[in-house]
Write a protein that binds this DNA or RNA. Structure first.
Length: 646
RNA sequence: GCCAAUGUAGCUCAGGGGUAGAGCACUUCCUUGGUAAGGAAGAGGUCAUGGGUUCAAAUCCCAUCAUUGGCUCCA
C-alpha cells in the first residue's frame, strides 16, 4: 500500500501501481471524466501512469494551466495524425502546446502548399479521430530503435531531434494510427476533445534558424466543449474591435499612406492633439524630476555612429547613408538620440557638482524594420521616443535608476496599466563577445539594476541574453488586445557610450572621471504607447487626454447661437469642445457622438435656452441631468484632477 | 527578408471572362425634432500597379507594391 497526500492535506492509502485516473475514480466517477493529467510530487505525468511510492498528488482538470497544456499537447498529436491522413508524405517537426492552443510545424510533401482552403478537411479528420476515443499509450524505446523508426519513416526532423536527446531511452505516445516522439504528458484518450479549429498557418524556420528550411506552422485550438470554442471565437471578435488600427481609423487619429511609405505613420489632427497632450503630461513630470529639454537634428554624420558603435553593429541593416551632392559626405538618419545627447554633454567641461545631468527630448528616430515586422503603430520605421539620457556618477546610478522607475510607475498608474510585467535583461554569459564594454562595467550595471528593482519592490523576470549590446536594461511590457506583448517603458544602463565618446567630469579629487549614462523612455515611443493606450481603453481615453472632452448637440438649428455661447464659455475654461450644428435629429447626433466616444454630450434646446442651463449626457452611461455651464466646467476640472492625481 | 492569405467608392463589404454593386459617409433639397440611425435626390471607382493569356480581363496567369497572420530580427 502507498500513501497519497491530497492538496487539502488528507491522506489516503492505495495499492501500489494505482493510476491517477483510478484515484480520481475512487473519489467520484465524474471527476475521473475530467482529469486530464496529474502531478506526482510536482512532476506532471499522464493520468494513466502507475504510482508506486508515497506521494503528493494534484489532479489537473481543464481549469488548470497544466490541464490545458496536456489537453492541447494531445490535440497537437491528433492534428498531426489528421495532417498525415490528409497529406500523405508530410514530414513532422515539432508540435507543442502554447498559451492559446498549439501548433505543429510540418514540411509539406513535394511542392504541395497548405492553405486555408484545407482547414475544413483537417478539422473533419481531427474530429473523426477524437470521436474514436482512442487510448493514448505511452511507450519507452531505446534510442537506436527510435532512430530506426523515424529513419524508416523518412522523417529527418525527428531523427535530428532524437540525435540531440541525451537520454538513453526515448518516450513515444501512440493513439489510433499515429505515434509521436514526446515527453508527455497526454490525456488518457482522444475522446476528451470535443471541439477543434485550425486558426492560421504561417511559415516558421526549422528550430527558429533563419538559415534552415522554412516549415509550415499550423496553429490550432481545441476545447472539451463546443460551447467553449464558440465563446473563444466571440472573445477573439471582441478583441478585434479594440484593435488600435481599427479604432485609429474610426476616430481619425492616424493614417498610413502608401505614397509616404510603409511604417511611416501620419498623425491626423485628433491624433496629433492627443499626442501633444501626452507629451505635455510627461514634460511636466520630467520638469519636476529635474530634466532639461534639448533638441537635436534628425540626421548626423556617419562618423557619429561609427564612434557610438551603432554603425558597426547595425549599419548594414539600416537605412543607408545620405550623401551631400558636392563633397559626398555621409549622413545617417538618426536611429537613436543618445549620440547627439552625448555631444551635448561634451559641449563644456563638467564638474561632479553638475551631475546628474538629465537631457530630455521627444526625439524622432528612423529604423529600418523588416517589412514583415511592421504592425500598425506598434512597430514602425519612423517614431518618436520620449527619450532622455541621464549622466551621473557611478555612486548616483542606483538612486537615479530608482527615480526613473518612479516616473514609469506613475505613468502606468495614471493610464491604468495594471497588467504590465517587468523584465531585467542581462548579458548572455556564454556569448560575451556580442557585447561591447568591459566585464567589470557590465557587472556593476547589472548589480545596480537588480538592486534598484528589489528596493522598489518590483516583481521582475530575469532574461539572460536579452540585454542591448551596450548595457543591461529593465523593460516594462504590456499586452495588446490580441495578447501580443509589447515593450513600453525601458530603462537602460550604459557604461559604454561614455567610454566611446570620452565623456568626463572633474571629481572632488580634481581628477577626471567617467560618468555613467542611463537611457530611459517611460512611454517607449509615442506611437507604440498610443497604440497600446487605444487598445487598453478601447478608444475611450481619459478625460484629460481625449481630443474632444465635450460635444454640444443642438435640438434644432434654432439653438445654434446659444450653442456658440456655451462653446465659448467652455473654450475660455480650456475645456475642449465641438458643436454639432447639423440639421439632424437629436437621436442621430447622440449616436454619432457615442460612436466617436466623446466623454460628454451637452444637449441644448428650448428648455436649456430659457433657463440658461445645459443638459449633460455621459458617453456610455446616459443622461446626467441639467446643470449650469459653470457647474459643468467645475465638474470636468475635478474629474481631470482626479485622473492626474499622484 | 521568409511562408500564407488579402487588395473592388472615404469606410465596411458583396460580386465575378461580356459596359461596376450595396450599406454607411459625402453634396443638395425637404424636415426643426428632447437622449444611440428622419426622408428624397445626387455625386463618387482605370476593381492596388505593371505585364501576359483571350475576340473580350475587375474576374484567369506572372511580377511588383501594400496590408493581414506568423517566423526571423528589433539600437
Amino acid at each position: 500500500m502507498i500513501k497519497i497526500t491530497f492538496p487539502d492535506g488528507t491522506i489516503r492509502e492505495y495499492e501500489s501501481g494505482i493510476t491517477g485516473l483510478d484515484i480520481a475514480k475512487s473519489i467520484n466517477e465524474r471527476l475521473a471524466n475530467e482529469v486530464l493529467a496529474v502531478s506526482i510530487d510536482d512532476e506532471i505525468i499522464d493520468a494513466t501512469r502507475s504510482i508506486t511510492n508515497d506521494a503528493k498528488i494534484l489532479l489537473h482538470k481543464w481549469e488548470s494551466e497544466q490541464g490545458k497544456h496536456a489537453f492541447w499537447h494531445t490535440s497537437a498529436h491528433i492534428m498531426a495524425e489528421a495532417l498525415e491522413a490528409v497529406f500523405p508524405g508530410i514530414k513532422l517537426g515539432i508540435g507543442p502546446a502554447i498559451e492559446n492552443g498549439f501548433y505543429y510545424d510540418v514540411d509539406m510533401p513535394d511542392d504541395q502548399v497548405l492553405s486555408d482552403k484545407d482547414f475544413a478537411k483537417i478539422e473533419n479528420k481531427f474530429l473523426e479521430i477524437a470521436r474514436g476515443k482512442h487510448q493514448i499509450i505511452r511507450k519507452d524505446m531505446p534510442k537506436n530503435e527510435a532512430l530506426e523508426f523515424y529513419s524508416q519513416k523518412g522523417d529527418e526532423y525527428k531523427v535530428e531531434l532524437i540525435n540531440d536527446l541525451t537520454d538513453g531511452t526515448i518516450t513515444f505516445y501512440t493513439q489510433n494510427n499515429f505515434t509521436d516522439l514526446c515527453r508527455g504528458p497526454h490525456l488518457p484518450n482522444t475522446g476528451f476533445i470535443k471541439a477543434f479549429k485550425v486558426m492560421s498557418i504561417a511559415g516558421a524556420y526549422w528550430r527558429g534558424d533563419e538559415k534552415r528550411k522554412q516549415l509550415t506552422r499550423i496553429y490550432g485550438i481545441s476545447f472539451p466543449k463546443k460551447k467553449l470554442l464558440d465563446e473563444y471565437l466571440v472573445m477573439l471578435e471582441e478583441a478585434k474591435k479594440r484593435d488600435h488600427r481599427k479604432i485609429g481609423k474610426e476616430l481619425e487619429l492616424f493614417y498610413f499612406s502608401e505614397r509616404v511609405g510603409q511604417g511611416l505613420p501620419l498623425w491626423l489632427p485628433k491624433g496629433a492633439m492627443l499626442r501633444e497632450r501626452l507629451e505635455n503630461f510627461l514634460k511636466k513630470v520630467q520638469k519636476e524630476y529635474g530634466y532639461e529639454p534639448v533638441i537635436t537634428p534628425h540626421i548626423g554624420q556617419k562618423d557619429l555612429y561609427v564612434t557610438s558603435g551603432h554603425y558597426a553593429k547595425y549599419g548594414a541593416d539600416s537605412f543607408q547613408p545620405i550623401t551631400t551632392p558636392a563633397e559626398g559626405e555621409e549622413f545617417l538618419l538618426k536611429p537613436m538620440n543618445c549620440p547627439h545627447h552625448c555631444e551635448i554633454y561634451k559641449h563644456k567641461p563638467r564638474s561632479y557638482k553638475d551631475l546628474p545631468v538629465r537631457y530630455a527630448e521627444f526625439g524622432t528616430v528612423y529604423r529600418y524594420e523588416q517589412s514583415g515586422e511592421l504592425h500598425g503603430l506598434t512597430r514602425v520605421r519612423g517614431f518618436t521616443q520620449d527619450d532622455a539620457h541621464i549622466f551621473c556618477t557611478p555612486d548616483q546610478l542606483k538612486d537615479e535608476f530608482k527615480k526613473v522607475i518612479d516616473i514609469v510607475l506613475y505613468v502606468f498608474k495614471t493610464f491604468g496599466f495594471e497588467g504590465f510585467t517587468t523584465q531585467i535583461s542581462l548579458r548572455d554569459p556564454e556569448n560575451t563577445e556580442k557585447y561591447i564594454g568591459s566585464d567589470e562595467n557590465w557587472n556593476k550595471a547589472e548589480t545596480a539594476i537588480i538592486e534598484a528593482t528589489e528596493e522598489k519592490g518590483l516583481k521582475t523576470v530575469v532574461e539572460l541574453g536579452e540585454a542591448a549590446f551596450y548595457g543591461p536594461k529593465l523593460d516594462f511590457m504590456v499586452k495588446d488586445a490580441l495578447g501580443r506583448k509589447w515593450q513600453l517603458g525601458t530603462i537602460q544602463v550604459d557604461y559604454n557610450l561614455p567610454e566611446r565618446f570620452e565623456l568626463e567630469y572633474t571629481g572632488s579629487d580634481n581628477q577626471k572621471h567617467r560618468p555613467v549614462m542611463i537611457h530611459r523612455a517611460p512611454f517607449g515611443s509615442m506611437e507604440r504607447f498610443v497604440a497600446v493606450l487605444i487598445e487598453h481603453t478601447a478608444g475611450k481615453f481619459p478625460l484629460w487626454l481625449t481630443p474632444n472632452q465635450a460635444i454640444i448637440l443642438t435640438i434644432s438649428e434654432k439653438y445654434n447661437n446659444f450653442a456658440k455661447k456655451v462653446g465659448n464659455k467652455l473654450n475660455i475654461s480650456d475645456i475642449r469642445s465641438q458643436i454639432d450644428e447639423r440639421s439632424e435629429k437629436i437621436g442621430r447626433k447622440i449616436r454619432d457622438a457615442e460612436l466617436q466616444r466623446v466623454p460628454f454630450m451637452i444637449i441644448l434646446g428650448e428648455k436649456e435656452q430659457e433657463t440658461n442651463t445645459i443638459s449633460v449626457r455621459k458617453q456610455g452611461e446616459g443622461d446626467l441631468g441639467t446643470m449650469t455651464v459653470e457647474e459643468f466646467i467645475q465638474f470636468v476640472n475635478k474629474e481631470v484632477e482626479k485622473e492626474l492625481e499622484k
